[in-house]
Nucleic acid binder design. Structure first.
Lengths: 208, 208
DNA sequence: TCTCCAAGCGGACAGTTGTCCGTTTGAGTG
DNA sequence: CACTCAAACGGACAACTGTCCGCTTGGAGA
């Protein structure tokens, strides 16, 4: 499960001054991001606006991606909880549930595009591994894999490499491609959902 | 077609001093990258090693991604040429040809991982669009789309949204996911190829 | 050959990231 | 309350990106 704290929430035994710094950083970031968007705001500015030194800022959030992750925490928790509830029931085909996951993920991309973009940008160079090696993606991956395993068990689909198939199913929803399709290519959500549905449920060779 | 120059080769009417600078920059970059890897080398260092000022360096290559693109030029040209030749013949199913494209792309990732990673890293923030809006990806995309259209025409597969399907087929081969699967998850190429083949040729529901 | 100027040059610079380190402080313990 | 020290603080700092701008130069035309 994707627990609280997964992507950078408050830790537990925080000293009072530390908690206050954290809150001031988050408030300042929220305000600046709301005013000017996420991308053009630097960590330097956040620190200045929050009235904390560089050391304090980076001690709490070691890069902009971590800060954005913390801001995304609530939204991500809601998302994973809603998905959990829907998947819990024993009703309906597992592939249908996988489609639900993917559609909800598209919605999550839509709602949180700027923060997700910033998180992605921050995970470059020596932080490349964090792009996939993070609790949120791990949860997506495990959930998709589980659904595919159930689908195989129930003979909805023949056996296949569920681990690879999970990554492959999620890959078209990576934030960069998603934004490219939406903003540059002008695809609408309905079209993308329909096309994705076709590919997931029928594959290329499906009955159309 | 992916022409020369697509990703940043020499331009045509270059002044002699400019050509010399460009060559020195490329030589210095190649040497530094070979010695220490791509990621930890900064543009600043490349400029210093090449003996050119910042202005000259950035006039030629406006960011590290562009420099890496230029270094990749030859390899990318070879790749697209080889694919072109294979696809030219009128023989065999279009889906087989799509698989060929994807497998060769996996090989391209493998051979050029560090440069591709650096290019990706450089395309963040206000340069997000360049991640997909570049001649190389456009060529991949158009090629995949064309093969899917042929497959539909020839009744290899039922009609579908070829544009979306092209992006979706290429998405699992994005360099970040590819490296994660290879390096973090320890998947081997054979497994990935087999799993991809299954998904492309049969879809999830295929005859297994 | 001389003139001219667009193209090219380099280095200073502002703004940023992320680290380091000496100083301060909050919260347990006696 | 006084003591202690790990935790937290802030600001200086080195390194880097990308821009700007005044100076230089290759090469085209007279």
């Amino acid at each position: 499960m994707l627990d609280a704290e997964a992507w950078g929430a408050e830790c537990c035994g925080e000293r009072r001054d530390a908690a206050e710094s954290r809150q001031r950083i988050l408030d300042a970031a929220r305000a600046l991001f709301a005013e000017r968007g996420v991308e053009p705001v630097s960590m330097y500015e956040v620190g200045r606006a929050a009235g904390v030194g560089q050391g304090t800022l980076y001690r709490r959030y070691e890069h902009k991606g971590a800060l954005c992750g913390a801001l995304l925490h609530e939204s991500a928790g809601r998302f994973s909880e809603e998905v959990r509830v829907r998947l819990e029931g024993d009703d309906g085909p597992a592939l249908e549930k996988l489609m639900y996951l993917l559609q909800r993920l598209a919605g999550f991309n839509e709602e949180n595009a700027p923060l997700l973009g910033a998180i992605r940008d921050a995970a470059g160079g020596e932080r490349r591994r964090e792009r996939y090696h993070n609790p949120f993606y791990q949860w997506l991956r495990e959930t998709a894999k589980m659904l595919l395993e159930i689908a195989v068990e129930r003979r909805e689909i023949p056996p296949l490499d569920t681990e690879y198939a999970a990554d492959a199913s999620l890959a078209p929803l990576n934030i960069d491609l998603y934004l490219y399709q939406r903003q540059e290519l002008g695809m609408d959500r309905g079209r993308m959902t329909a096309a994705m549905r076709r590919l997931v449920l029928e594959g290329l060779k499906g009955s159309g």
